[in-house]
Amino acid sequence: MKAAPLPVVVLVSGSGSNLQAVIDGQRSGELPIVIRAVISNRADAYGLERARAAGITTETLDHREFPDRESYDAALQQRIDAHTPGLVVLAGFMRILTDGLVEHFRGRMLNIHPSLLPAFRGLHTHRRALEAGHEQHGCSVHFVTPALDAGPLIIQGVVCVLPEDTEEQLAARVQQQEHRIYPLAVRWCAEGRLRLDGDTAMLDGRPLEAPVRIGPETPLPA
């Protein structure tokens, strides 16, 4: 008997290109999920337009209308819980989440970060990679835990840094990798293959001692 699609809520703050990659996977049937809602802290986030175009429920919860981070996250948690998701996907949600919210969704929340973690946590990752003279850069999907960009790693997309690269050129190539690896991690969750056991990411019942790594020309694993 075929399992029911995994209910998903996606959080966005900006253009939502990773959201679009997940929407495309849902449409094609490659991702056995149903996106129940897309929620943003910004009413002008283009990701909301992407969701509306796909017929997905959208909501805006403006953080500026709350006195502090704790009250905002409490309201956000209620909004998310109303859709009873099995997975929460952060797709460029530019908010540092409180420990309480993160623990509530522990093992059910994924994030994608534009660096090869643990290198370059935080912002301006492409600029920092160029300034540091790194030969490789990329993106990482990880489970969300209270420490910023420090949750257990799942999969990384790797690109070579070219001598002539600008920050914008490097960012564009990394983003192409994001659109490949994030839907894959979501699919693994939907298929019940990926889970969090304590502080360890488990894939197919085995601990991921190191994240799965793929390059631009590497076929995606099953």
Rank of each mutant, 00 (worst) to 15 (best):
V89H: 06
P32E: 08
Q26T: 12
R42N: 15
G86P: 05
I56H: 03
G86C: 08
M94V: 10
G92T: 09
D68P: 03
Q77L: 08
D24Y: 10
S40L: 02
T58Q: 01
F93Y: 15
L76N: 03
E59V: 03
R79A: 15
G86H: 09
Y72N: 10
P32R: 04
Q26K: 04
R36Q: 11
V22F: 00
G47K: 10
E59M: 10
V22E: 05
R52I: 02
E49Y: 00
M94E: 07
G25R: 07
Q78G: 12
Q26N: 10
T57S: 07
T60N: 07
G47Y: 03
I35L: 03
S71M: 06
S71A: 14
A43P: 13
A91P: 00
R27D: 12
A43G: 09
V38F: 01
D73F: 05
E49W: 02
H83T: 09
S71E: 14
A91I: 08
F93K: 08
R42H: 14
P85D: 01
T84R: 14
Q78W: 01
L76M: 12
L31S: 06
A74N: 11
I33A: 05
P67T: 14
G86M: 04
I33P: 11
E30C: 12
V38N: 05
T84C: 14
H83E: 09
E30T: 15
Q78T: 15
L87G: 10
Q78P: 02
D44Y: 08
R50V: 05
I80K: 07
L76A: 09
I35H: 01
R50K: 11
H63Y: 06
D44S: 14
E49K: 13
A51M: 05
V22Q: 09
R69M: 06
Y46N: 13
R52G: 00
Y46M: 13
A75M: 02
A82V: 06
A37F: 03
R52W: 00
H63N: 11
E70S: 12
T58H: 02
D44L: 11
D73G: 09
Y46H: 15
G25L: 05
E49S: 14
Y72G: 07
S40F: 02
I96V: 15
A53D: 09
F66L: 05
I33E: 04
G92N: 06
A45P: 03
Y46P: 02
E70M: 07
R52Y: 01
I33L: 04
I96G: 08
R50T: 07
I56T: 02
S40Q: 08
S28C: 05
T60C: 14
E65R: 15
S71G: 11
A91V: 06
F66G: 12
S40K: 06
V89I: 13
T57F: 10
D68T: 09
N41P: 09
R64Y: 12
V88P: 12
Q26C: 13
F93W: 13
A54T: 04
I80C: 06
I35N: 01
